[in-house]
Design a protein around this nucleic acid. Structure first.
Lengths: 193, 193
DNA sequence: TTCATTTATTGAACTTGTTCAATGTTTTTA
DNA sequence: TAAAAACATTGAACAAGTTCAATAAATGAA
């Protein structure tokens, strides 16, 4: 059940068989139905999660009611509201399953236990946070410099498996454009070929 | 000389007097003139820096020659290209002093030494990276949802000390708009009051 | 299978932001 | 301190993206 998780951790740092076993035992599986929420705005995020099946989106709703998608997560991706989780404060985000999904969750207490007792875990999360941060910096620069057309092309090239599984409504909310405009972009691209 | 650095570290985590002393001794001061570069695109970033005087900008130049500013750093801020530094690969960023400035630099070797020998340092950087990441997530959401007017107002409210020290050209590159348009926004705001 | 709901497409009018060029203002430097 | 360079403002024409409304297509639930 935690096979995928173990592989994922191994990609980031080297752990002994024993350490990885002990760490993975701290996770609990949760099955979650399409359109239900792992986290809602106002809740304190009590978990850090690793997706083993399905698709999630992590998003914000602004004061005009528009949704901005911070990121998607499918198998092999981690999900949490890092701000709410680490500082134990109410979240500004929603985490919703877009299909019937499964996640492995670790609680704050168990994660702290791991930081305190498993020597490499601090490093694991430092490394993972750094990688996530680098990816977000890249996305920030792209959003500042590229047109919506180019961002869409980049998206489908970078995440072909996501494009398959997501509606254009979701992709538009990630790119920061209206779904009507995305539709026009798609039309333009198709006719160009 | 490392007084400000010590205070800064103390804000993130608790260290013993001895640990903080030993860690801070790994830094070397560098004086850097206005308009000179701490890092250029193509270089491997060999340092992580803490600003003790002056102003820096960390930016990218896209293929059309336009500059996107990832962030500014004044006294008490950290600067590096985290991707280039950790993975020892050529940077895509420039780090430039906008005034005569001073930084404390730690090399990769010394930072690894600290990770290996000073027990809390791994945690320090995990915590700092998390905080930086949360701030960038916030900025990402704002860029996806807010108009340039609102982003400018947010910027001067959030960073009044930066607004004082930066030209509008720099602020526009940070907001992701042309400086002409920023000028029009400023005009509109002034006339509204 | 059918009906309801959600998603996608298209067009027209509109808003936001860009580009270019001209002009004025401030800051630097010799 | 004068000249050069960098920065800021403004207007006009344009491009990118939004909004609203209508319609079509796909999906899901009974």
């Amino acid at each position: 059940m935690t096979e995928l998780l173990k592989q994922n951790i191994n990609k980031h740092i080297a752990l002994s068989q024993k350490e990885i076993e002990e760490f993975c035992n701290l996770f609990q599986q949760k099955v979650i139905k399409k359109k239900s929420f792992l986290l809602r705005e106002g809740d304190v995020c009590k978990f850090e999660g690793f997706v083993t099946k399905g698709t999630f989106r992590v998003y914000h709703i602004d004061k005009n009611g528009a949704e901005q998608i911070l990121y998607f997560a499918i198998e092999n991706w981690w999900i949490t509201d890092i701000d709410s989780f680490t500082n134990e404060k109410p979240s500004q985000l929603f985490i919703e399953a877009l299909e019937d999904s499964e996640v492995l969750l670790i609680s704050k207490k168990d994660k702290e236990f791991a930081y305190a007792n498993l020597s490499k875990i601090e490093k694991l999360f430092r490394v993972m946070t750094q990688k996530t941060h680098v990816a977000l910096q890249r996305r920030m620069i792209d959003n500042l410099s590229k047109t919506a057309d180019q961002r869409y092309l980049d998206f489908i090239e970078k995440y072909p498996e996501l494009q398959q599984r997501l509606s254009n409504l979701q992709i538009a909310a990630y790119l920061g454009i209206s779904h009507e405009f995305l539709s026009k972009i798609r039309n333009k691209i198709t006719n160009k070929r």
